[in-house]
């Protein structure tokens, strides 16, 4: 009775939420058979056999229709997947990440220094690969004084850093005048170019620097810039150091910037407080890290370098 008694149970329960399952149960009862795990039909009593006989033909037809539908569904599903499989295995989209560049041709870094003997500027054509090549690209870089239209062709030089990193700097030893405008222009062989106009600032007085120690701990000093610097571009401590190890000795330059520590007193005046021991400690750490624990160093000289920017200098950089 197990098959039918289950149907009876399901039949009598009802209830909305069970409806889908109940209908499934009713369907099996009406069909007069259930399928066990071995895929055999079985009957539970002679009465039920009679009931089955009365609906046998219809039931078998319904069963066949049901099986046919199942097979049809499966066939459609498998055919669909097989078609997709065949289609997609031969389908691979190409991936070209680069967008055509018609906006940026060069990047230019550096500064023009009216007090320097030689002007150096980094000029890099925008490239399609990660690293710069170890040759000088085809380009021409000129520096034109706008007032006189005098144009200087700058000489390129390949700079090779450690680990195979390359860069191209251009240079000239032509005199640069204060309060003049210059145009730096870089041109590719196809005529595409980038340019930048530089306005040289006024000449400013040599800043006064107090090397006087301020009382207290830690040791500290003041740099006093007493006017004429409209836009403070940089304040650097340049410390020349001789480093010695067991096997060799070398002279090296360590540069520390104090620009971001400067207090603007208005009127082109600034004060900068600096801590020499902190700089020496940093030099010692770098020396030890680079040259090993037996390295010693000796300070040869300490320079201060102060730069004033032109009108386009962004003080909030």
């Amino acid at each position: 009775m197990k098959g039918w008694s289950e149907c009876d149970k399901v039949d009598s329960s009802g209830g909305k939420r069970q409806r889908a399952k109940v209908k499934s149960g009713k369907f099996m009862c009406a069909m007069g058979f259930v399928v066990d795990s071995s895929d055999r039909f079985f009957f539970d009593s002679s009465e039920e056999k009679k009931a089955f006989t009365s609906v046998e033909r219809k039931s078998v037809i319904n069963m066949l229709i049901k099986r046919f539908k199942t097979i049809l569904h499966l066939s459609i599903f498998f055919t669909f997947h097989f078609s997709l499989f065949t289609l997609l295995t031969s389908c691979n989209q190409t991936f070209e990440p680069f967008q055509e560049n018609d906006r940026f041709y060069f990047t230019v870094y550096g500064f023009i220094d009216a007090n320097a003997d030689t002007q150096w500027v980094r000029v890099s054509p925008v490239r399609g690969e990660l690293e710069a090549k170890d040759n000088i690209p085809e380009m021409q870089v000129t520096l034109t004084e706008l007032e006189t239209a005098k144009t200087i062709i700058m000489t390129p030089k390949l700079v090779q850093f450690r680990q195979g990193f390359n860069a191209v700097n251009v240079w000239t030893d032509e005199e640069i005048k204060t309060e003049r405008q210059y145009r730096l222009r870089a041109v590719l062989p196809d005529g595409n170019e980038s340019s930048s106009v530089i306005t040289m600032p006024n000449e400013f007085p040599t800043p006064r620097i107090f090397i006087q120690r301020v009382p207290g701990v830690p040791t500290r000093y003041f740099i006093w810039i007493d006017g004429g610097v409209d836009k403070l571009a940089d304040v650097q401590s340049r410390i020349y150091v001789r480093i010695r190890t067991q096997f060799w000795e070398d002279e090296q330059l360590f540069v520390f910037s104090h620009r971001n520590d400067a207090d603007d007193l208005s009127g082109g005046k600034y004060t900068i407080e600096f801590f020499p021991n902190a700089l020496l400690s940093s030099i010692e750490k770098q020396s030890l890290a680079l040259q090993g624990p037996d390295a010693t160093f000796e300070v040869l000289r300490h320079q201060f370098y102060i730069a004033s920017g032109g009108p386009e200098w962004d003080e909030n950089i």
């Binding site: 680069f98 560049n101 940026f104 990047t107 925008v126 399609g128 690969e129 990660l130």
Partner: peptide, 8 residues
């Protein structure tokens, strides 16, 4: 999408 590379 990248347009290119340079050094800053």
């Amino acid at each position: 999408r990248p347009l290119g590379f340079d050094d800053v």
